[in-house]
Design a protein around this nucleic acid. Structure first.
Lengths: 344, 344
DNA sequence: TTGAAAGCGCTAACAG
DNA sequence: CTGTTAGCGCTTTCAA
């Protein structure tokens, strides 16, 4: 068979120049621009190897003909996908919901950093069927409230560069980015001390790594003043879980005068329970939340909360996978945290 | 040169079988399983063309050797990427924020539906640099508060199947999925009427298509009772914009007795302003929000709001791009909406 | 500064 | 039911 290249889906003669609207390849552009395919390739990548004039002409032609670069072909050749998979736990149920700015700002930061450096962001929940696509990724970012041990090991098994968002102290062998949960806890403790509170409680399930760190920081700072916080059992992450926990707590410990909740949701539930039991906030009980969500900020009363910058966190996560993908080493990192004092 | 295939990065002889941990291709698996590459290909796709026994053996070998399917190669061959780009407006700033469940639940629904049907979800904000990746997608879903005219036309120019989330009535020529904003507005109006309110106002910038639809439904239902709502100017989407608008409104129209806000954020700002001016909610002024966010639901007082199911919406968006990608036709669709009555 | 040749890993189209 | 052949569109040598 002759090696002649036939044009696809046009009725024009074999040797005709391609016309705009065709499905074009670099070879087609090359023909139009009077150069070779490889020169087109180089020109389109702004390679210094190609004459500035030629480069301009090639780009011009590409533009004019509406050329669309074929990512798959490049990926196949280069043996990399220029893609980072972001694994999020997106339970469709309201239980254990991840609403609020948490994942969205994180995603925003990740996307911003990755897309401006040539990578694609592949969103997945690692449920059925997504495996081949995720496996194709050059790197993986794991989001989600920590309980992702299984996913983590799964990803690790096929040896992809991986970065995790979560509790830094809980995963020695991973590269993890997280907010400075211990410091966040300590900030809450210090504020309670400054306010003269002596009977504080912590709200949150320490089985969750980040919450455990918050409790450590909280209890540690308190210990320096000879105080040990109450730690009632909290079933989940929801507003109602917070309310229930506080009802139970007040039953057993009516004299509690400060509540540090591991999330704003929990804090809001706590305030509701407090008010239902006739406690005033903040006169009788001080409350501090975590995450500094809009929900907390616009609540009545506006919630005092520990702030973390999720967008920066996303950017950092993205940078770290990139570093890993490029074969260099990185380490875990902890992001600064500060207390936003509002009315509670 | 002999056509012999040499093994990559192993020191073993050319003819040796591949060992686990190698970078494997279907040809390698084929050698191990004693079949041809195409049979491996078929077996891995569960093709009925291949003997069940052979299929099982091939899958077994693939599993055992940790074979990773090369998506790029398939995509190149098949001339499709099995990828859908989701274009979100993710401004890193707090202005015009899209927090709340809005985009996340939508993304959740989309991801769920798409990944379980073999597609990947490419997340992008259509800022600099992301174009080649988005162009490679087989289809596009456009999210974001409607103002996306430019992005829409951009996408349309390169002729990709596209589905938009937004105001159905505003884009005749597009396939758009949106909640039934008119009905939502009407529901609010009907409740105000039932409560005996006669001097309602609408809060929201009608330049935003979805808001305009909500106003249409609201004003239409009101008109049947001979009532015309106030429509004060509302600068943006934020809590403080809502508060400012209401302050100005009360200045000019102290006798307002009902407020329908185009979003929960706006509604919360409105309530704040109302209280600052000594109005009681809901005794003096009824307030209804839109979106039924957790923020509104847990607010004090808990906000009455028009609910829309974003997860379902995401699933529907995903189904529609798939339909389009597969060459069939679809139409725009409107999702049901209902009023969640709470305290306001 | 430009080009020719070769091949990345997969699958559709034909045989057998 | 299984295999052979060819080529998707790109880029990395190597040569001019």
């Amino acid at each position: 068979m002759p090696p002649a290249k036939r044009k696809r889906r046009t009725g024009t003669a074999t040797t005709a120049l391609p016309s705009p609207g065709d499905h074009l390849t670099m070879a087609d552009l090359a023909k139009v621009a009077g150069v070779s395919a490889i020169t087109v390739s180089r020109a389109l990548r702004d390679s210094p190897l190609v004459n500035a004039e030629t480069r301009a002409r090639v780009r011009e032609v590409a533009q004019q003909y509406g050329y669309a670069f074929n990512v798959s072909a490049r990926n196949l050749k280069l043996r990399r996908s220029m893609t980072v998979a972001v694994v999020v736990e997106m339970k469709p149920t309201v239980e254990r919901q991840m609403s609020g700015p948490y994942p969205l700002d994180l995603l925003g930061g990740i996307t911003q950093e990755l897309t401006t450096t040539g990578y694609s962001v592949l969103l997945t929940s690692l449920q059925g069927g997504s495996l081949p696509n995720v496996q194709a990724a050059d790197g993986v970012i794991l989001l989600g409230q920590g309980a992702h041990e299984d996913a983590m090991h799964e990803v690790q098994r096929w040896g992809r560069p991986m970065v995790v968002w979560g509790a830094v102290s809980r995963h020695e062998s991973q590269v993890v980015v997280g907010s400075d949960n211990r410091r966040g806890g300590a900030l809450a403790a210090e504020r309670f001390i400054a306010l003269g509170r002596r009977r504080p409680a912590f709200l949150g399930d320490p089985a969750h790594g980040e919450f455990a760190e918050r409790l450590e920081g909280f209890a540690g700072a308190l210990a320096r003043h000879g105080i040990t916080p109450q730690t009632p059992t909290v079933a989940s992450f929801t507003v109602s879980a917070g309310a229930e926990a506080v009802h139970a707590l007040l039953e057993a410990n009516p004299q509690v005068d400060a509540l540090f909740a591991a999330s704003d949701l929990l804090a809001i539930g706590a305030i509701r329970a407090l008010i239902e039991r006739g406690r005033r906030v903040p006169e009788d009980v001080s409350v501090i939340g975590y995450d500094d969500t809009p929900l907390g900020a616009t609540y009545v009363p506006p919630l005092t909360s520990v702030h973390q910058n999720f967008i920066d966190a996303g950017v950092l996560l993205a940078r770290k996978v990139r570093t890993l993908i490029e074969g260099e080493a990185t380490t875990s990192e902890t992001l600064p945290t500060h207390l936003v004092v509002r009315a509670t």
